Simulated assay, not measured.
Amino acid sequence: MKIRTHTSLFAAVFGAAALVAAVPMSAMAQDRTQTEAEEEGDSAQPVNDTWITTKVKADLMATSDVPGTTIDVDTTNGVVKLSGNVDSKAQHDKAISVAKGIKGVKSVDAKGLAVAKGGKK
């Protein structure tokens, strides 16, 4: 009877150890960045404020006719705040449009984004 108990205990411990060893491998296989998930069309990944800020800033930098280096971006609970100076109303509107197009953005506050005096309408 004791042999079975030890054998069963050994099997349980060995099985649990194998399971624990397998968990990190499967977790690593599923660990993807938000950008990778977005590129693959996976909307199950959570979007956080830091990711939104980074993505908005990167898209502003990559958008022609928008001075991404002069626009500051801050995100709180999905609300993106844009601040800084742009040369025209068109740049102002384009920056807002870019920010609104990012996944996870609930709204855009551009009160702090000013068109330079003498800027184009």
Rank of each mutant, 00 (worst) to 15 (best):
K100F: 06
G104D: 09
P67N: 14
V108D: 00
K89H: 12
H92M: 01
K117A: 12
V79T: 15
S83I: 06
A90C: 09
N77T: 07
L82Y: 03
D109S: 06
Q91K: 09
D109A: 04
L113A: 01
I71Q: 07
K100V: 00
A110V: 04
V86E: 00
D72A: 15
G84T: 08
D72Q: 10
V73D: 07
V115P: 08
S97Y: 03
V73P: 05
D65A: 08
Q91W: 04
S97M: 09
T69V: 14
A116W: 05
S88F: 08
V86H: 02
D74N: 13
I71A: 04
N77H: 08
D93N: 12
I102S: 02
G104L: 02
A110Q: 02
A90M: 03
D65G: 00
V80W: 03
D93H: 05
G101R: 10
V115I: 15
V73I: 08
V66N: 05
V86C: 00
V108Y: 05
K103A: 06
P67Y: 10
V105Q: 09
D109Y: 10
A95R: 01
G104M: 05
I102C: 02
D87P: 13
G112D: 11
T69G: 14
K103E: 10
A116D: 14
A90P: 08
D74P: 05
G112E: 08
T76W: 06
T70H: 14
K111A: 15
G68A: 08
S97A: 13
V73F: 04
A114T: 10
V98I: 13
S64D: 12
K81L: 12
G118Q: 09
V108W: 06
G101T: 00
K111G: 13
T76H: 12
S83T: 07
